[in-house]
Design a protein around this nucleic acid. Structure first.
Lengths: 331, 331
DNA sequence: TACCGTAGCGCAATCGATTGCGCGATGGGA
DNA sequence: TCCCATCGCGCAATCGATTGCGCTACGGTA
């Protein structure tokens, strides 16, 4: 049941040496005479000894564990990000604990607090509601943080999308097809960082002579339901848009479904463009035109930055991952 | 930088009491005089003290962390399972570390070993290649294990699908539509537990007078690519099947794409049926008929069983989650 | 006055590792 | 023969909590 587990002193006794020697055999940090080394290894094998990493962490102050704090791991985008992060951390023998916040500020804070309590070695976070000062405690504890988001507190390492060019191309494409009124299903209102994707579309619309009036910007969560709801709202306007840009593919898929229910023909009645290019985007019909953001690569990049930081890198880094317009059947 | 963090003895000094008292104020396990209690609380607040859970774990031998060991968190099925598990563990303040094995036996063993090294409080695992004795070390360490799989080592808690009825209905439905030759895209060959889903289809085919010849059973991984490849193999047989059952939805989607490329009409030339009902299943066109397995619920059930075990439940439990046939457009 | 139960608190051992420091043995050079 | 550098090893402190045990003070009862 609650087996007494084998400790280093058990091994030491069995091998006829001190725990010091056992420790050094295991870590290889100091030379040990061949006969003792072998005696230790034999004892380790026979007793089935396993280093207790909790005790090790207490002593060394390194837990070899990092946290990934995201709104929802069941969202394929974050699942992909998680995978990238984990694959990057694995070779260094780091574990990743996944934390779902449901895009709730209280949960974000709770998890951040947990990180310092548990003395984790680092955090990758896609914050939804956090202000720079919310990171003070983590920073004070000396715990490295990498933010994965379009924008974040200016002092932390950041991995973001560089969608400038792709959005410009997307809008140019829509303009070429004769669209004049653009609508947008944007992210939630009140986010501390504003809504960078909305700003990109706004600027691009200006450049290409499209109209993106305030009345055609709908705020909502990053979900299918919100996308569907948003589309219905947009299409019930006096002057509905002929093209809609969506903050991500989930909302775009929701919008697609709602449009279908309304009997709208895509793309002839209405063009839709998503963001991220998650697996679903190429599987729905009509296939979703979107702006591809390499989530897996974003995750592994976060991992790389985190490892660098843990290893002691000093300066801040910011990596902008290039996105790419993928034209399919909804535009 | 590497901030000296505040410990209980710092708090004790500031509050003019012993660490013992601080500990008891924090845990509430012993009565403490109001004035001292307040002094401690004040000191905690002023110093920004946070309990070091590593030290706590060492002392109490509980890490409040469990592992989830699955082939791939980027697979929506497992992502959903993970979410269910996490939601179940969260109220008890447990963390979940997610481990991807890529369905590789060596990785499975490595992670299992890690679990005991890190003295985690429990494991949920969907093993692909593990035999009962591979769990000996974990068992010896007294660490609770819950298996999420169609079948598993008979001695461990198990959460599985009960697809008997649904598969029977699916096959009956195919028979009713006049199908006679059934093919199957099954799981990898050589799994220690055999392939329960294949067996279900085999039995049901017998009952309903369908042919499921050995030549029409293709083994492969649980991926889209394997599904596509498998379909091509099946359709190049002398006598190809008119209906194919797939081990899960990912392979079914792969098969669907391959069928489309071959110019096959679904469902008139070929019927397809999947398993799990992941989000994609209802989004592809034609929409995939499938057998719905509630992955989220499976995850939360695993969490519940794990918590019971941690709390001391003795007997083994096995939960069979009822699956349900969902007929859409591929049959 | 003597005795005893109880509430409040602290000492010190303990969990299982890591590591600075120093000690003894060995051997090469003068 | 003597000295000192080098190698191998162990003692004991330390990381930051938890908790068994025992001590003091206080108040009620006989």
């Amino acid at each position: 049941m609650d087996q007494q587990s084998v400790t280093m002193s058990d091994v030491a006794r069995a091998a006829g040496v001190s725990v010091t020697t056992v420790s050094y055999v295991l870590s290889g940090k100091r030379a040990v005479a061949p006969d003792k080394r072998e005696a230790v290894q034999k004892a380790v094998a026979e007793l089935g000894f396993r280093l207790n990493t909790v005790a090790q962490s207490l002593r060394t102050k390194r837990s070899r564990t990092v946290a990934l704090i995201v709104p929802d791991i069941a969202n394929p985008f974050y699942a992909q990000l998680a995978r990238g992060l984990q694959d990057a951390m694995r070779p260094e023998r780091y574990h990743v604990v996944v934390c779902n916040t449901n895009a709730d500020r209280a949960e974000e804070l709770l998890y951040l607090d947990d990180v310092v309590r548990r003395r984790l070695d680092g955090v990758v976070i896609t914050p939804q509601w956090l202000a720079p000062e919310d990171f003070d405690a983590v920073r004070a504890a000396g715990i490295p943080v990498v933010v994965s988001s379009d924008t974040g507190p200016g002092s932390l390492d950041l991995v973001r999308a560089d969608s400038h060019e792709a959005v410009d191309q997307a809008v140019a494409h829509l303009a070429r097809q004769g669209h004049e009124r653009l609508g947008m299903l944007a992210g939630p209102a009140g986010a501390p960082a504003g809504d960078p994707r909305l700003e990109l579309y706004r600027a691009a619309a200006g450049r290409h002579g499209l109209d993106l009036p305030a009345g055609l910007i709908v705020r909502g969560k990053h979900t299918r339901e919100a996308g569907a709801e948003g589309l219905r709202r947009l299409m019930s306007r006096k002057k509905p848009p002929t093209a809609i840009a969506c903050v991500n593919d989930r909302t775009a898929v929701g919008a697609l479904e709602a449009a279908e229910q309304l009997g709208l023909a895509i793309p002839s009645d209405l063009a839709l463009i998503g963001h991220d290019d998650i697996e679903i985007a190429s599987l729905v019909r009509p296939r979703l035109s979107t702006i591809r953001y390499p989530a897996y690569e974003a995750g592994s990049t976060c991992g790389r930055l985190l490892l660098e930081r843990i290893a002691g890198r000093a300066g801040r880094s910011e990596v902008a991952l290039r996105t790419r317009l993928v034209l399919r059947e909804t535009t």
